[in-house]
């Protein structure tokens, strides 16, 4: 049941979005030289088709929701299983986002080490020693591989972290 609601929500979202993007395309600056197949030419084809199909999809989901309308009440109850799973996905997602921010500001070494440590708690795992050793080793190997062997740059972070990281790479 919940997935039908989600389906409807997503199809409607895409429907609205494709109409919005069609109009954004309509507002693209015009080119004098290529006016007959301008920047908006292709996006308009795509988003018009998409609006059409997502429209049909949305209507179909509404119909199928109606058919099973009486089960509506069960749509919002979640099993404990589902909740725990959703929680882990969100935790992982949040950690990745934090890592992304830290990646830029703390530099590669600190951010990576911390992320490897914390993210390993999201999925059940008992051995704490391995956790630390792995996080440390993997970070060191990556830093050596990218900066020394390949001479490719890694983020150094900003401010004081920059000074710290310049020492290593």
């Amino acid at each position: 049941m919940a997935h039908r609601l989600l389906d409807l929500a997503f199809a409607s979202l895409l429907f609205g979005l494709s109409i919005f993007l069609w109009f954004v395309a309509d507002g693209f600056p015009e080119s004098r030289r290529f006016a007959q197949a301008d920047a908006d030419f292709w996006p308009k084809i795509i988003f018009a088709t998409m609006a059409l199909i997502t429209g049909i999809l949305a209507i179909r989901s509404v119909l199928s929701l109606r058919q099973s309308g009486e089960e509506m009440a069960g749509a919002f109850t979640m099993t404990a299983d589902f909740r725990a799973s959703a929680l882990r996905v969100c935790a992982m997602g949040a950690l990745i986002l934090i890592y992304f921010v830290a990646f830029q500001h703390l530099g590669f070494i600190l951010a990576t080490f911390a992320f490897l440590m914390l993210a390993s708690f999201v999925i059940p795992y008992k051995n704490n020693v391995t956790r630390v050793i792995f996080a440390a080793c993997f970070t060191v190997v990556l830093v050596l591989f990218f900066t020394q062997a390949l001479e490719l740059p890694l983020p150094r972070g900003s401010g004081v972290f920059y000074d710290l990281n310049v020492l290593f790479y």
Binding site: L110, V132, V160, D163, V166, L167
Partner: peptide, 20 residues
Amino acid sequence: MLSLKTATMAAFMAGTTLAV
């Protein structure tokens, strides 16, 4: 964990002085 932290700190102090 503690030793790692102090090591990092030491490296960090060295960094700021070397940068000058």
